[in-house]
Design a protein around this nucleic acid. Structure first.
Lengths: 153, 153
DNA sequence: CTACATGCAAACCGTTTGCACCCTA
DNA sequence: TAGGGTGCAAACGGTTTGCATGTAG
């Protein structure tokens, strides 16, 4: 828990950012959380840790960390807030419960060289792709929380 | 152009919705547009057609059409607004220019029975997936509009 | 000591809602 | 003519910004 602080600290500095309490704390929270979080989630975790911070600082910090490439921002269907995650080892996809919004990260990619294939078939230079799977998690299924019509997937 | 009006009209009624000028106009705009549109885009098109309408009616109409399954709502990376499209023949994916936001619809799906595969490997019941490809369109590439660092794809 | 970080409050922007009026079925 | 549809204005929620102050390098 303490050990990674040095690494994160270095990562921040390497990007030309000043290492501050806020940045360290936020990067560490994302580093230790396996799911993307909304700015406000992070804000709440910080409060619970008695780290005093302003919500707009959370947003500015996340923006700085994203620009630096240390953090990634994603947007999920039917979730109005943007989510942020520590940007480790490149590529990943997401499995999301449409009922409770639970999010599971999928680390292997079924798409192989599909990006390359599309590049050949279109006018576009492909940078990458994002894949989201939607469904019901076990809890929601067992609790009968499956009434919602999701005709748009 | 006039021919489809009967079909759209019927579709609206079949869903238990009253057929009104707003609903017809909006559904027709989406029907004739191959790309997803933001509520405000639709609002502007209506204005240009001298169809007077209130923006909140556009939102309410889109919501009704979505609930009825006639329209689909999607969200795109780095686009704050929600986009809507006519919900024809089920499944499709999107290719988006990160610079100018140009959007191309891809009608074939490279994922085969991947949904089923994930269902077997997880606790989830899979409803479906959404796939977005990001890159530079030809115009932006030729205009040198490719400076942006997109390290999150 | 200086440039960048932060707190605070206010603005912002897309979207939603309450209420009175309107119009389709 | 009854119940859903619409206009208008105000609220809403997540995010951004201007400005004064604080702090890392």
């Amino acid at each position: 828990m303490m050990k990674e602080q040095g690494i994160l600290n270095e990562q921040i500095k390497k990007c030309g950012l000043k290492s501050t309490k806020s940045r360290m704390a936020i990067l560490q929270i994302l580093y230790n959380n396996d799911c993307p979080m909304a700015a406000e989630d992070i804000f709440i975790v910080l409060k619970n840790k008695d780290i005093q911070i302003n919500l707009s600082t959370v947003y500015r910090t996340l923006e700085a960390l994203e620009d630096a490439g240390l953090v990634t921002k994603i947007q999920i269907m039917n979730e109005d807030r943007k989510l942020f995650e520590y940007n480790e080892i490149g590529h990943r996809h997401y499995l999301i419960c449409v009922t409770c919004k639970k999010l599971v990260t999928i680390h292997d990619c079924p798409l192989g060289d599909y990006d390359h294939h599309v590049e050949e078939e279109t006018d576009f230079t492909i940078l990458g792709h994002k894949l989201f799977l939607y469904g019901y998690c076990r809890d929601c299924r067992e609790n009968g929380e499956v009434k919602r019509t999701e005709n748009s997937i």
